[in-house]
Each structure stands twice: as C-alpha cells, then as structure tokens.
C-alpha cells in the first residue's frame, strides 16, 4: 500500500515538472536569446549566448529605444489608478447588486455580463469618434476612465459570485446597530473580499499593463506612451527585430512579475482565510 502511494507521488512530481518545463520553455528561450543578436537567435535559438559578444547590449538599446523610464512611469500610473478604481467601484456595485434583488439590478447585471463579450472592433470606431469629437483624446486620465468602464463587467462578475456566499447575518446586525449601508459595506464586507480583491487585482493589472490596442488609440503623443506601445520600434512592416524585442519584453515583465510574486502570498493566505470563516 505504501509502495503504491510512493509510486503515485513520484508520478505526480514527474508530471508536474514536465508540464512546468513545457510552460517555462518560451521564457527560457526569451531570456537566453535576449543576450544574442537577432541573427544568432535565428540560426540557433538553443545555443547559450556568448556573453562577451552582445552582453547587455540588447537591454541597453531596448532601454533607450523604448524611452523606458518615461514609459514605465506612464504604465505604472495608468495601471495602478485604473485598477484601484475598478476594485473600489466594482466591488461596491457587485455588493449592491447581490443584496438588492430588484428587477433593474438584474437587468444591470445581465448587461454587464453580456458586455464582456462585446468584440472590441464593434465599438472601436464609435468610441474614438465620440471621444475624439469631444476632444478628450491623448490623455492618461481618459484612458484610465476607459479602463474603469471596460473593467466593470469582469470585476463585477467575479465579485458577484463571491459576495453571494457571504452570510447576511453580520451585516444585518451592523445595520441594526445603526450603521449606514456604506459603513457596513466598508467595515464588514470589504475586508472579507480580500482574496477575491487580490485575484481581480492581479488579473486586471496584467490586462492593463500589457494592453496594446486601447492605449494605441487613445495616447497619441510620444510622451504619453506606455511600455507595450514603446515596443513598436522593434516591429517593422515585414519583420520583427527579435533580439532587442526579447530584452524589451523581459524589462516589461519584471515589474509585474514582482507584483505577482509579492501578492501571490496574499492570494493563498486570503483564500485560506476566506475558507476558514
């Protein structure tokens, strides 16, 4: 019996590490090839880089070409503010939609869920033409507002599912104690949402951080460019300059990777806490 268990355990480890290698292979290739020239890369993507030849050359050129410091500042501001606004407004809205089963709320919820499937192409031109005529383009703040709007559907959908399972009793007693709806939401419900807040946070951070199309439509001047917009210089009409692009992507990923690794702890912690209650 014990032997059987050990074999099973061994198989589990083998399986998971094979999958992991498959999942990580593109990253491995990306990192080693960011130290090569595009030509070396095309010739043999598996060869280890000869560091003395290219070294950090691709990183330096990507850093300069992307105007990295400016771009990362823009990306950070846009991502951070958008995500915070989404988390705040969507959790409040989801809470209200769950707790008040009015007809209008049901319609609103259905509309929000359906909105997640609107193909962006269907609203792209109307969107830019409305905001363009109102002269509201080329500003981070408008972009943030747009992300706030586009982020509602998914965030409310996730929050809605989670809040449904929170028992009513605590809020009811708080309301009896004279708390307003707002107070009871922020003092009782909001803290319970921590795991799902972190999950939505991560998913939205990744979405906004990496988004290309929307900022490319809204942000016109170079000074406003975000990180994904800055990688444009590695793409030409017919080809891609892979080597500096790889370096540029590694530079773009590092900040979100840090955010992810940092908050992963909280996801698990939060999820466990949520489960105990």
């Amino acid at each position: 019996m014990k032997e059987k268990k050990n074999v099973f355990k061994f198989a589990k480890y083998v399986l998971i590490y094979i999958l992991l290698i498959l999942f990580m292979m593109p990253f491995y290739l990306m990192v080693i090839n960011s130290f090569k020239t595009t030509q070396q890369f095309v010739n043999n993507p598996f060869s280890l880089p000869k560091l003395e030849k290219v070294g950090f050359g691709n990183y330096i050129s990507a850093f300069n070409k992307m105007n990295f410091l400016n771009a990362i500042t823009n990306s950070t501001i846009i991502t951070l503010i958008s995500v915070l606004l989404i988390l705040l407004t969507a959790s409040m809205a989801a809470y209200f939609l769950v707790r008040h089963k009015w007809k209008i709320n049901k319609i609103i919820f259905a509309t929000l869920v359906a909105s997640m499937i609107v193909p962006f192409q269907a609203i792209m031109i109307p969107l830019v033409s409305i905001y363009g005529r109102l002269n509201l383009m080329n500003s981070k703040w408008i972009l943030i507002f747009m992300y706030m709007g586009f982020g509602q559907g998914f965030a409310i959908f996730i929050f809605h599912g989670f809040i449904k399972n929170i028992p009513l009793e605590m809020e009811e007693s708080a309301l009896i104690d004279g708390c307003s709806k707002i107070q009871s939401f922020f003092q009782i419900v909001f803290p319970l949402l921590k795991p799902v807040l972190v999950t939505v946070l991560i998913l939205d951070v990744l979405w906004i951080w990496n988004d290309y199309l929307l900022p490319s439509l809204v942000l016109l001047s170079p000074i406003e460019r975000t990180l994904p917009l800055s990688t444009y210089s590695f793409f030409t009409t017919y080809s891609v300059d892979y080597a500096p692009l790889m370096a540029g992507i590694v530079l773009t990923i590092i900040p979100v990777l840090i955010v992810y690794l940092f908050s992963q702890k909280y996801i698990i912690e939060g999820v466990v806490q949520g489960a105990i209650k």
Binding site: M124, V128, S129, Y131, G132, M137, S216, L217, R225, F235
Partner: peptide
C-alpha cells in the same frame, strides 16, 4: 513634428482610420 507610431504588423490601416475617425 511628432511621429505617430504605426500599428504593429498589419494594424496600420486600422490605426490610420481610427485617427481620422477621432478627428486626430
């Protein structure tokens, strides 16, 4: 003179049309 980045790959027409549509 500001260079507007072209769309990646074949996104050029889409980008140019969106600029016209937005009055920019």
């Amino acid at each position: 003179i500001e260079l507007i980045p072209t769309g990646i790959g074949e996104g050029q027409q889409e980008k140019l049309q969106s600029l016209y549509a937005s009055g920019n």
